[in-house]
């Protein structure tokens, strides 16, 4: 793990948001990263990722949370989107049954496209729409249990559980690293040596792919 100047350690975790169109992925992200909510938000345009600093056990964690750029609308998320992700929030809208029915397909895609251990949370968003709920909390819990996911219902609109959901995922990633579950394949270690990045010049890259100075 790379050390920073103050003698502590700094981590960078890539976390992806997935789920059907209009379940509130971008608003979950803007609520967590900027404490904002846009009720008029159209299909996602212009959002790359947001970086949020979180402290866990005295360590500074940079959570780099990626949005789909709208490519989920016709199930066209690139395999590269999942590359290097160590956490995922799989989101559905509690007021639209169809978005919940898609969850297994999203989980399958996540598994297919990513070899490393991913801390996964099932998120039932828009829990403020209780009066038009189509998916019960029990159904959400049950699916999460069956698939081995954390579970939480959130509302990006009124900020219910948003911070908590992200923090649970970030802590689980941190725990996975501490338990050395991540990057156990020998080729993953090979991957981290002598990488050339064209962003900010190029230098020697060391350490696991999810973490950096």
């Amino acid at each position: 793990m790379a050390e920073n100047g103050e003698g502590g350690e700094e981590y960078l975790f890539k976390i992806v948001l997935i789920g059907d169109s209009a379940v509130g992925k971008s608003n979950l992200l803007s609520r967590f990263a900027r404490n904002e909510f846009d009720s008029n938000s159209k299909a996602t345009i212009g959002v790359e990722f947001q970086t949020q600093l979180v402290e866990i056990d005295g360590k500074e964690i940079k959570a780099q949370i990626w949005d789909t750029a709208g490519q989920e609308r016709f199930r066209a998320v690139t395999s590269a989107y999942y590359r290097g992700a160590v956490g995922a929030l799989v989101v559905y809208d509690i007021s639209r049954r169809g978005t919940f029915d898609s969850i297994k397909r999203w989980l399958q895609e996540l598994t297919t496209q990513n070899d490393s251990t991913v801390a996964r949370m099932l998120v039932g968003n828009k829990c403020d729409l209780e009066n038009i709920r189509e998916v019960s909390t029990e159904e959400g819990k049950s699916l999460a249990e069956e698939e081995g996911l954390f579970f939480m219902e959130t509302s990006a609109l009124d900020a219910t559980n948003v911070q908590t959901a992200f923090e649970i995922v970030i802590r689980e990633i941190y725990n996975n690293i501490s338990r050395k579950v991540l990057n156990s394949d020998s080729y993953k270690a090979e991957l981290s040596v002598n990488r050339v990045s064209l962003v900010n010049g190029a230098g020697s890259k060391q350490g696991p792919s999810c973490c950096s100075r």
Binding site: I45, G70, Q71, R73, A76, T78, S79, A80, Y81, R195
Partner: peptide, 24 residues
């Protein structure tokens, strides 16, 4: 890393961020 197929995907992601609609 991961092969030459990463190049078109990178440009597609750029396009998507700028509003291009993708259908596979």
């Amino acid at each position: 890393i991961y092969g030459e197929g990463e190049l078109p995907q990178a440009f597609c992601r750029r396009a998507a961020v700028k509003g291009c609609i993708y259908v596979l």
